[in-house]
Amino acid sequence: MMLKKIKDNIDKTLLGATTCIVFFVIQYLWYAFDRTYLVPMWIVQALLIAFYICCVIIYTVCKSKAVEIQYQLPHVHTFRIVKGNIVLIVKKNELFSLQSLVTIYQQESAEDLEIAIGIGVVETINPQGNMQIVIIEALDSDIIQRVFNPGLIGTINRWKSIYVKPTISQEYLERRLNHE
């Protein structure tokens, strides 16, 4: 943990050290050489300050490269059955918003195919950082019955393969639009 902090702050430390060295050299030049020296001191100082500004600009440009943001799809932490509906408790994520439709998927391992098992809606996002997602339509009832069996509340290994995506399939959307 301490090494990570040092690594994160090393660039700030180097920039501060460079600043101190540049100003130290400028002060030393004023002390060591007389103002009537053959090369005017203000030219040397101007060059040092220009060098320092170039270093700061290069540092800023290199540091401000676009950082690639990778979002993790949230996994189900637990679930509850409320009034006959399955409510999933999922860690909050920036990709989700209140009342948005989501698709619930199951994937046993990285080599397996994703299986869409249900459509849900984000019902609430509480201050503790959890989302409550209600499954409003089962796309694969067998998997839902097997995974979200009320007798298995507390066996987290069952739901580690379940995750939520902030999108819905075109097939589901067309089916809903045709029925209404």
Rank of each mutant, 00 (worst) to 15 (best):
R158H: 13
I43R: 04
F79Q: 05
P166A: 11
C62S: 08
I21A: 14
A32C: 02
T78W: 02
V121A: 01
L139N: 09
V164S: 05
T36Y: 03
Q128F: 11
E123I: 10
S100F: 06
M1Y: 07
K4G: 00
L173S: 10
H77T: 13
R158C: 05
L152R: 13
Y172W: 15
Q145F: 05
K63W: 12
M131A: 04
K12H: 07
S161V: 10
A50E: 07
I53T: 11
N9A: 05
P127Q: 06
D142V: 10
I81C: 03
E174Q: 14
I10A: 13
L14R: 06
I86T: 15
C62N: 12
L73D: 10
W159M: 13
M2N: 14
I144L: 06
Q72N: 12
Q27W: 11
A66H: 05
A32H: 09
V61F: 12
L48A: 06
I115R: 13
I58R: 14
I153P: 03
I58K: 11
K91D: 15
Q106T: 15
I10M: 11
M131Q: 08
I168C: 06
I144S: 01
V134E: 03
Q99T: 07
Y105Q: 00
D8F: 04
E171N: 07
R35W: 12
S97H: 14
T18Y: 15
I135A: 01
C62T: 09
I58M: 09
A32T: 06
I136D: 08
I53M: 09
E68D: 11
I125A: 01
Y105E: 08
L152N: 15
E114L: 08
G84K: 12
N157S: 12
R158G: 07
R158W: 08
N9V: 01
R176Y: 03
E171D: 11
I89Q: 12
I86N: 07
Y28M: 12
L95C: 04
Q145A: 10
I26Y: 04
L73G: 00
V44A: 13
G16D: 02
F33W: 10
C20F: 15
T155F: 13
L38M: 12
E180Y: 14
T13P: 00
M2L: 09
T18L: 08
E137R: 15
L88E: 09
L3H: 07
L73Y: 15
Q107G: 06
I81P: 01
K160S: 08
A138F: 09
E137I: 06
F33R: 07
